[in-house]
Every structure is written in structure tokens, then in C-alpha cells.
């Protein structure tokens, strides 16, 4: 089947999916969860995948986004149109603030600082009870309501059940996916890849390494916060436990499984690990093992992939720019002239 039908087909299936008979609340919930993790995986991918930087505290930005959204809703009843940008900007801002002093240092230090940041976020959320209600969690977040009353007073749509969230999640996924594809195949994305491949050579081509790393960190953090924002308004309850290191690890594992730097791979990785998690949740107790033991499997996956399949389990489905019409035209020309284009 020609590649160009793939995307419309995928979209059509996705749009019809919630209406199918077997798509009950549980199924929809899991699929929506997969979409949230796909967004997270794509957001994290920017750092280790595009820039070669290990971010061990990605969940911190997810948490910042979620709590920003949750608190703004609970305390101020802020409308969606303000809440989403506020949460995303807050996440991105923390990324920039954290990145500015650390991105000049070697990558190992970056990994550690991100880790420490995420731990501090959890401590803050746990201990600042006046603000977050601490370990008890933050209940009473209103579901999403899309307020278009400035266009027509009757246009206020309150979300109910899993189905509307599925569509909202799909929209978020599509937005992030398109953005990531565009970034990857642009002057900005190439500069990132250059940094990943060889920093000195990148600088010798005029790439301001420091600035581009900060941009990457800001974007990654912003996407994490966006996912957090959705998560808060979907589960309607937040607790600090949801944003522990395990989450960072899980998301990193998705990216590694799909192949560092591979946008499609990251999404496939997310789907597989969420599905695997659901299966293990049933299987592990039957083996008499605690639910956390599933991380044993994730740890093994990481070790094995780095050892035997460092490009991931899903070799690039489409390399950066393959879809770019300019590159396609070039390829056609080269083939006409009998060139090699391995």
C-alpha cells in the first residue's frame, strides 16, 4: 500500500475507534493513556534523541504542568484557554531556568541536575501542603469544559466520560506529532542532530551549541507540561506519587525501545510499554510478585537494547526529511541520473 494513504487511514481509524462496540470505557481509557505517553515520549525524545542529552527528570516537568493546571483550576477556575498556555509556559520556563546554568557543562552533569530537579519537585509537592494538599493529593479538579461562549453564549461544552477525552488526546497527539516532525526536518532540527553527532563539528558550522540545547530543553519541558496539563484535567486527581522517578524511567525506556531520535519509534515504544504494563499488572500478582517488579523487565529492556540494538527495535520507519517533498524530488533526480542513494 502506498505510504501516502497511511496517515489518512490511521486518522480515519482513530476517529471512528471510540464509536466501535468493543471500545468500552476501559479500552478508551487505556488508549488515551497510550496517547498521553506518546506525547511524553516525543517530548523527552528531543533531548536524548535529537541532542544526545540524558534527561533523568522529565517527569518533573510533567508534574509541573499537571499541578499548574490542577491548581489553577481548583483555586481560580481558570479557563482552558489560559490554563494550557500557562502550564506549558511554566514547564518550559523551568526547563530554561534549569538548563541555562547546566547546559554548558558535560552531559553527565546535565543528567544529574535533571534528576535532582525532579526529586525536588516531588518533595515540594509532598511537603507544601498549604498549596498542594501534600501526599493526600489534590482532588476536585474540574473536568475539561470547552468554553466558546464568547462566540455564542450557548457554546459551552462540558466533558463527560472517556470519549471526549479520547478526541482531545488525539488532537494533542496530532499537534505534538506534527510539531516534532516539522522541527526535526528544519534548520533547528538539523542543528540538534549536529550537536548529537559531534559538538565541535557543529560549532564549526556555526551552531551556537548552548543556545540550541536550551531551546531543546525548553521545548521538551513544555511538551511534558502539556501532557501533564491534559493528565490533570482527565484524571481529575493529582498526587505527588504520580511524578516519581519511575515515570521518568518508563518514558526513557519507551524512547530507547523505539530508537533514540525516532519519533515514530517513540510512539510505538509508548504503545508497547503501556500495553505490557497492563498485561504485567494482571500476570505479576499471579506469580506472587509485586506490581513494581515490572520495572525489572523495563531495566532489562534498556540494557539489552543498548547492547544489541542501539538504534532501537524499530529501525527508522522514515528518516528525517524522507517525507520532505524537496528531498523526494532530489531523490527522483538522482535516480534518473543513475546515482546511488543507498
Amino acid at each position: 500500500m502506498p505510504k501516502k494513504f497511511l496517515l489518512p487511514l490511521f486518522l480515519a481509524v482513530a476517529l471512528v475507534f471510540p464509536l466501535l462496540p468493543f471500545a468500552n470505557d476501559y479500552v478508551l481509557h487505556v488508549v488515551t493513556l497510550v496517547m498521553v505517553y506518546m506525547v511524553l515520549a516525543m517530548g523527552l525524545n528531543v533531548l536524548p534523541g535529537f541532542c544526545g542529552l540524558l534527561d533523568l527528570g522529565f517527569v518533573g516537568f510533567y508534574g509541573v504542568g499537571a499541578y499548574t493546571a490542577g491548581l489553577l483550576t481548583v483555586h481560580y477556575g481558570v479557563s482552558l484557554w489560559i490554563m494550557v498556555p500557562a502550564a506549558v509556559l511554566n514547564g518550559a520556563l523551568w526547563g530554561v531556568v534549569l538548563g541555562a546554568p547546566t547546559l554548558r557543562l558535560s552531559g553527565d552533569y546535565f543528567a544529574i541536575v535533571t534528576f535532582g530537579f525532579a526529586e525536588l519537585v516531588v518533595l515540594f509537592l509532598t511537603n507544601e501542603i498549604w498549596l498542594t494538599r501534600g501526599p493526600l493529593g489534590l482532588p476536585g479538579i474540574d473536568p475539561v469544559s470547552v468554553d466558546l461562549s464568547f462566540l455564542n453564549p450557548a457554546w459551552i461544552y462540558e466533558f463527560e466520560g472517556e470519549r471526549p477525552y479520547f478526541y482531545l488526546g488525539l488532537a494533542m497527539l496530532a499537534l505534538v506529532y506534527v510539531t516534532m516532525r516539522r522541527l526535526e526536518d528544519s534548520r533547528l532540527g538539523r542543528a540538534w542532530l549536529a550537536i548529537r553527532e559531534d559538538q565541535l563539528a557543529a560549532a564549526s558550522c556555526g551552531v551556537n551549541i548552548y543556545a540550541y540545547k536550551i531551546i531543546a530543553f525548553g521545548i521538551s519541558a513544555g511538551v511534558g507540561a502539556l501532557a501533564g496539563c491534559f493528565f490533570a484535567r482527565w484524571t481529575l486527581f493529582l498526587s505527588p506519587d504520580m511524578f516519581k522517578f519511575w515515570e521518568s524511567f518508563l518514558i526513557l525506556c519507551m524512547v530507547v525501545l523505539g530508537g533514540l531520535g525516532n519519533i515514530h519509534g517513540a510512539m510505538v515504544g509508548a504503545a508497547i510499554l503501556i500495553a505490557l504494563g497492563e498485561v504485567l499488572r494482571v500476570v505479576l500478582p499471579q506469580l506472587g510478585l509485586p506490581n513494581e517488579a515490572r520495572f525489572l523487565v523495563y531495566g532489562l529492556i534498556m540494557i539489552f537494547i543498548m547492547r544489541f540494538k542501539p538504534k532501537g527495535f524499530f529501525p527508522k520507519i522514515a528518516a528525517a526529511g524522507e517525507a520532505n517533498p524537496l528531498i523526494k524530488r532530489l531523490r527522483a533526480q538522482l535516480e534518473q541520473h543513475g546515482g546511488t542513494s543507498r
Partner: peptide, 30 residues
Amino acid sequence: AYKPLRASPRLAVLITAIGMSIFLQNLAMI
């Protein structure tokens, strides 16, 4: 875990180290 990756990018070894840490922790838990 680490020796086979001596010639790999730093990132790969670092990720392996994280994976190893998580693996051992959960192994101990089991």
C-alpha cells in the same frame, strides 16, 4: 553491561547504567 559499550557513545552507557540500577533494585525486591 559496560564493557561491551566502551566504544559506544556516552549516552548509551549512561542509559545502560540506569537500566542496570533499576534492574538490580527490582531483582532484590523479588
